[in-house]
Design a protein around this nucleic acid. Structure first.
Length: 580
RNA sequence: CGGAGCGUAGCUCAGCUUGGUAGAGCACCAGCUUUGGGAGCUGGCUGUCGCAGGUUCAAAUCCUGUCGCUCCGACCA
């Protein structure tokens, strides 16, 4: 390709709308342009890079035995009602109506369609296992699209769905995808690592996310350098001891009964920890009120712990849950936030019937202090198992950096990351609801055991840029660069020696299967060099009069150092760099 | 959905406080010079000042509404 024949609108300055490096570079290097918030056009160069990521994904999916299909983006809502996700995924579903006032949804993923397909087409255990994938446009009504392609309303995703006859077989399918993902991200030049993950709205039992470390990432990852444990903060557990922050005398000498005391104006954990009360946060019980499927639930945590909403949502298993509003809290408990508590004798009327969830770390706690459900009063001497009817114990707290690893005891670390891939073991949830059953060897009808596997293709592209850039621009890995080699003749007159040589190299490199771009613009050298660096072609081959006089040309790997080689050696050197 | 900020040339932004003929740099076009890291000079092109309404003799500027964009939040009582 000749530079003057394509469209590469590079920008000297970053548009004000872009905040993070990868977003700025996508715009500056002329890869994408915004159409609306979270909606983008891919320009020729951006599309080439995107296609390369897609091709890597496709090759590795095929290698792992998955079958490529293409499902519609426009889907009927009835299958979404059947799976239950018409409600549970309501906020992310784009819905629209046709001219006959019939409703449709735009696909954010395709479990419903593929499971319906499998139900219709797979009848026997002999047809299993099968894994179907597609690379297609997805739609999500994001509350806040952000950072260019990173969180978009419309984006490209690879989604794969496995169907197996047994749980063990499903585990093997899962492992195949897990391994394929490792290869995909490595081939994209990304340092990505798998972490244990929460399952979210898609549901399921077991899952890993593939994370690319980046300060601008939207996920928080907890990891242990001692044993390799790594998990999304939404899922992470630690070995922080129960007694941490408590004195032995408190534990051994519980008060025989609770005592109410006045705490006028004290409505926070911090305030109660200050004089004159001096109740350490570790000895307070924090009482939160959530509304789960329209019913209030009390959540108890130790005062120095933080609620993890993802864990709460998983524990509740509710379609929708949210923090209660002040009015709802007063209606349920008769007190305002800051004075709430779950002690049985303080729950009057209907409040006595409220469901109470408590964090595991509170188990066995005594001499605790909590709100009295009466504004301006707290209770002390609370023994949780004696004084509170806990309906369910669960891990509800958020892990913090520095806590000991549950497996090996080393301090946990934390860092931000971009989620580029996610693998789930789904079980039989969808196959049961949508009728994907088969006859086993004994002639019994059974639901297929499913897994689903996603890669954000457009997000992966941006993650590559976010991880691989410097002050001059993008530093593409060979595997996803829009062109691998940029030829830069500094004189572009057709009869100049530089241009003739450039044409010759172009032909020779193209004949060896390389994609090459020839910068035939009549621009000053500085402009051409700056643009080549900004776009980030892995190898630049410059042909200018200085080196020409010595019978040489200059080869410069992006981010590496420049070497001068004789004309005759140039093609060989480029090929050697590619094959490294 | 709540809060904050911003919408002026293709891009980055000034002008708005205190109303009075719409600006700069870059980009683009022409010419001359220049030619190894975003050149110089001369001349030129470029705008529904997001949109709608209001106030006013007069609105980019003040007021109201609305749309869009960006950031923070929508867990810790």
């Amino acid at each position: 390709m000749r530079w003057t024949q394509t469209l590469i609108p590079t920008l000297r300055e970053a548009p004000a709308e872009a905040e993070i490096p990868s977003h700025q570079l996508l715009l500056r290097a002329g890869l994408i342009r915004k159409v609306a918030g979270g909606v983008y056009t891919f320009l020729p160069l951006g599309l080439r890079a995107l296609r390369k990521v897609e091709q890597i994904v496709r090759e590795e999916m095929d290698r792992a035995g998955a079958l490529e299909v293409l499902m519609p983006a426009l889907q009927p809502p009835d299958i979404w009602r059947q799976s239950g996700r018409y409600e549970t995924a309501r906020e992310v579903l784009f819905r629209l109506k046709d001219s006959a006032d019939r409703e449709w949804v735009l696909s954010p993923t395709a479990e419903e369609v593929i499971t319906t397909l499998a139900g219709a087409e797979i009848a026997s255990y002999r047809q299993l296992p099968r894994n179907f994938y597609q690379i297609s446009v997805k739609f999500r009504d994001e509350i806040r699209p952000r950072f260019g392609l990173m969180r978009a309303r419309e984006f490209i995703m690879k989604d794969a769905y496995s169907f197996d006859a047994s749980d063990e077989a499903a585990q093997a399918s899962y492992q195949k995808m897990y391994d394929a993902y490792g290869r995909i991200f490595a081939r994209c030049g990304l340092k990505a690592f798998p972490v244990e993950a929460a399952t979210g709205v898609i549901g399921g039992k077991f899952s890993h996310e593939f994370m690319v470390p980046a300060d601008t990432g939207e996920n928080e990852v907890v990891f242990c350098e001692g044993c390799g444990y790594a998990a999304n903060i939404e899922k992470a557990e630690s070995g922080k001891p129960k007694a941490d922050g408590l004195s032995q005398s408190d534990i051994r000498n519980p008060k025989s009964e609770t005592e109410k005391f006045a705490t006028p104006g004290v409505t926070t954990i911090d305030a109660l920890a200050q004089p004159p009360f001096n109740v350490p946060a570790a000895r307070q019980i924090k009482t939160l009120v959530y509304i789960a499927d329209d019913r209030p639930v009390l959540i108890l945590l130790r005062g120095d712990d933080q609620l993890n909403e993802a864990k709460l949502a998983g524990t509740l298993g509710a379609t929708a849950s949210r923090p209660a509003e002040a009015g709802e809290i007063f209606a349920a408990l008769g007190a305002h936030p800051g004075s709430l508590g779950a002690v049985t004798h303080a729950l009057k009327g209907d409040a006595a019937a409220l469901k109470i969830l408590a964090d595991e770390r509170l188990r066995g706690a005594s001499n605790m202090t909590t709100g009295a459900n009466e504004d301006g009063f707290h209770l002390r001497g609370v023994s949780i198992e004696r004084d509170i009817h806990v309906g369910r114990w669960a891990d509800l707290r958020t892990v913090r950096a520095g806590e000991p690893c549950a497996r090996c005891g080393q301090p946990l670390k934390m860092r931000r990351a971009i989620e580029v891939g996610h693998v789930f073991k789904l079980g039989t949830n969808y196959s049961e609801k949508l009728g994907a059953t088969f006859l086993d060897e004994a002639g019994a009808r059974r639901p297929a055991v499913m897994g689903c596997y996603g890669i954000g293709v457009t997000r992966t592209l941006q993650a590559v840029i976010e991880q691989r850039n410097d002050k001059d621009g993008i530093v593409w890995p060979l595997g996803v660069a829009p062109y691998r080699v940029c030829l830069t003749p500094l004189n572009v007159a057709p009869d100049s020696e530089a241009m003739k040589l450039a044409e010759q190299f172009y032909a020779e490199l193209a004949a060896r299967g390389l994609d090459v771009i020839l910068d035939d613009r009549d621009e000053r050298p500085g402009v051409k060099f700056k643009d080549a660096d900004l776009v980030g072609f892995p190898i630049r081959l410059a042909i200018g009069e200085k080196s020409l006089a010595r019978g040489e040309v200059e080869i410069k790997p992006r981010g590496g150092s420049l070497v001068s080689v004789k004309f005759a050696e140039a093609v060989g050197r480029v090929m050697a760099l590619i094959e490294e």
